[in-house]
């Protein structure tokens, strides 16, 4: 099976969907001639032409708004945010327009809004953010964030085929650092399905994005102490895959939730509440979370490293719940 980087897998998924369905088109800043700030769409303009690969003005609200309009009348737009931090400008289009169309008047808005998220590359406060929590609170949207090349390809395809608006967050730290086997054939990774990246019986780590890799490292370390961790990669954040989450934690009785996003109002809080509501009797220890602190993400390497959840913190949290 071919081995691709995370970035190449996204590109391949987009490419195949554009080959498969001529309703699919791309719009965003510097995506055509330049091939995108991170080169995700390199070569697309040459292959698919200016009508389906549109270089836009710096107008995120218009990019997303126009995507919504085109989707309402039968096209399948994929909008790129040059950095996901700039999605804030399209907040209204997403949370008020796209998210509420189906509920109000039955019209589906099959758009994908994708872009690079996350820290680790010293991008500073405006090029490193994780924005899922802003949208997690909005019924009508879906949110996915792959951690591996396989999932990256399968999820972009599923997102494009989905009948509702999907936010597709790709972690820029993983773009060229993570490689993996990616089938050449057409497959999708269903939205709403988590994946067990490492099975284990003692403690469940629930996580996503870059933190899947850090959690796997932590699992490796505690395995030497005879603590067998199950690492659940959520993959889809909205809607959460309750079945996988609950059955894993019901089995292990101990859960650590890890996210790179800041703490208060983060997704970990919601998951912990579901565990509490649904499988309280199975819990052998308090549910704990390892997250970034409640601050903006700082620029300088020592500050950023301190801000980001580290493997050692995950290890400590796992040991703590395991020995509770």
């Amino acid at each position: 099976m071919p081995v691709l980087t995370y970035l190449e897998a996204i590109r391949q998924g987009l490419w195949e969907e554009m080959e498969r369905d001529e309703r699919v088109f791309l719009l965003g800043e510097d995506i055509g001639v330049y091939g995108g700030a991170f080169k995700v769409t390199e070569g697309f303009l040459e292959r698919f032409g200016e009508e389906r690969v549109i270089d836009t003005p710096i107008s995120e609200a218009a990019i997303v708004g126009a995507a919504i309009g085109a989707a309402l009348v039968g096209l399948r737009p994929v909008a790129e945010m040059q950095f996901i931090d700039f999605i804030s400008i399209a907040f209204d289009q997403l949370t008020n327009f796209a998210a509420k169309c189906r509920y109000r008047w039955g019209a589906g808005v099959p758009i994908v809004v994708r872009g690079p998220c996350g820290g680790g590359v010293h991008g500073g406060p405006f090029h490193s953010q994780n924005v899922e929590a802003y949208f997690f609170h909005t019924p009508g949207l879906k949110i996915v964030e792959p951690a591996t090349p396989y999932d990256a390809k399968g999820l972009i395809k599923a997102a494009i085929r989905d009948e509702d608006p999907v936010l597709y967050f790709e972690h820029k730290y993983l773009y060229r650092r993570i490689r993996g086997e990616v089938p050449e054939d057409d497959y999708i990774v269903p939205i709403g399905k988590a994946d067990i990246k490492r099975p284990g019986r003692d403690v469940t780590i629930l996580t996503y994005g870059w933190m899947v890799h850090k959690s796997l490292e932590a699992a490796e370390i505690v395995a030497q102490e005879d603590i067998e961790v199950e690492v659940v990669d959520l993959r889809t954040l909205l809607p959460l895959d309750d079945e996988t989450i609950l059955s894993s934690v019901a089995k292990t009785g101990r859960a650590v939730i890890v996210h790179e996003d800041t703490r208060t109002g983060g997704i970990a809080g919601e998951i912990a509440m579901r565990l509490n509501e649904r499988i309280f009797e199975y819990l052998e220890a308090p549910v704990v979370r390892v997250t970034a602190p409640d601050t903006p993400i700082p620029f300088s390497p020592p500050l950023e490293e301190f801000f980001l959840p580290q493997v050692e913190e995950i290890v400590q949290a796992v040991r703590w719940v395991a020995n509770y």
Binding site: H122, G124, P125, P296, P298, F299, S300, P302, L303
Partner: peptide
């Protein structure tokens, strides 16, 4: 020692 003490660039 930077004006933002490393918080921004």
């Amino acid at each position: 020692t930077s004006p933002t003490r490393g918080k921004d660039s």
